[in-house]
């Protein structure tokens, strides 16, 4: 089941969604068996920002039918903390490392990309564009021009593959994907979480500390599949598909909709080794070779 993704050789097509598996924490809970049975073919780390972030006030979770809403708020140690503390540990994982970064301005993203461009431990970069550009007020990934401007700014800074993680909270994610491709992105990934909200059962105020949050899990699977399909039909670069994948059959759907890799997120919360099971199930399915991205029909 080995697969090539942006020039990186992977043992199988299952990776993790950023922010849904902390390999360092998991090693504390499970010990070194985690490394022997590492579930993902590449590891995508949680979003890193320039400055350290505490994240949103709790509560941060709300269970919904077939999924959950999270308002985690991107807690992380910041660029310096990540480089000093997390990167050395993540570099010891048995799989390639993809670092997910986010900035509140283009220059912040540029700083992050430039910093990781120099690190040989890093196989690829993923840009989380699901946040507002504080200079323009636009969600970077919701608008094709914003996305194009961002990718154009950071593209010259690194020879490493750049994956643009699209937000589903956009009018036309495929147009954003096309803009990313035209500006030099090597791949796109989707979907990030869909905006959602829950009210406190008694007070009727928003339950989540961040007021709104992102919906993920089985509940978003059909929406994810439609968006992956639309994007894969629009671009020639490889697509990482995710959203509600719980089984090998779900992963096969995402691949058959045009993705090259499949990321597992929320299902790892229900079963820490879910991705091991999903790749086993996928392998046992009698399906033809996944279509290489350059044979994907264009619109």
């Amino acid at each position: 089941m080995s697969v090539r993704f942006c020039g990186i050789e992977l043992a199988h097509p299952i990776i993790n969604g950023s922010g849904t598996f902390d390999a360092i924490a998991a090693r504390r809970a499970f010990g070194d068996t985690l490394l022997d049975e590492f579930p993902f073919a590449a590891f995508v780390s949680k979003t890193v920002t320039v400055e350290p972030r505490q994240g949103n006030p709790p509560p941060r979770l709300w269970e919904v039918a077939g999924g959950l809403i999270n308002s985690i708020g991107l807690p992380n140690k910041g660029l310096d903390g990540y480089l000093a503390q997390d990167l050395p540990e993540l570099a010891r994982l048995p799989v390639p490392l993809i670092v997910n970064v986010m900035g509140f301005t283009r220059e912040e993203v540029a700083r992050l990309v430039a910093a990781f461009a120099e690190r040989e431990e890093v196989a690829a970069l993923e840009l989380n564009v699901s946040c507002p550009n504080v200079e323009t007020g636009l969600i970077m990934g919701a608008d094709p021009r914003e996305t194009a401007a961002l990718v154009t700014r950071v593209r010259p800074l690194t020879t490493k593959p750049i994956v643009v993680k699209l937000t589903p909270n956009a009018t036309d994610p495929a147009a954003v994907a096309a803009a990313a491709e035209a500006s030099g992105a090597d791949a796109v990934s989707l979907i990030n979480t869909l905006r959602g909200m829950a009210l406190h059962p008694r007070t009727r105020e928003p339950w989540l500390g961040g007021r709104t949050g992102g919906v993920s899990g089985a509940a978003v699977r059909s929406i994810a599949l439609a968006q992956v399909s639309a994007v894969a039909n629009r671009v020639a670069i490889p697509v990482v598909g995710m959203g509600g994948v719980q089984s090998g059959g779900d992963a096969a759907d995402v691949l058959d909709a045009g993705a090259t890799l499949v990321a597992v997120g929320t299902e790892s919360f229900r079963d820490p080794a879910a991705a091991c099971r999903i790749s086993r199930e996928l392998e046992s399915l009698d399906r033809g070779q996944a279509r290489p991205p350059d044979e994907t029909p264009k619109q």
């Binding site: 922010g19 924490a25 499970f30 985690i72 807690p75």
Partner: peptide
């Protein structure tokens, strides 16, 4: 605390402490 994963994966279970938010499951 409300937990989704129990092993530090989701950052959902944090509680405020004198040392900032900590993941209760970890």
């Amino acid at each position: 605390s409300g937990m989704a994963c129990g092993y530090g994966a989701c950052f959902g279970c944090v509680v405020p402490t004198r040392a900032g938010y900590v993941r209760l499951c970890l």
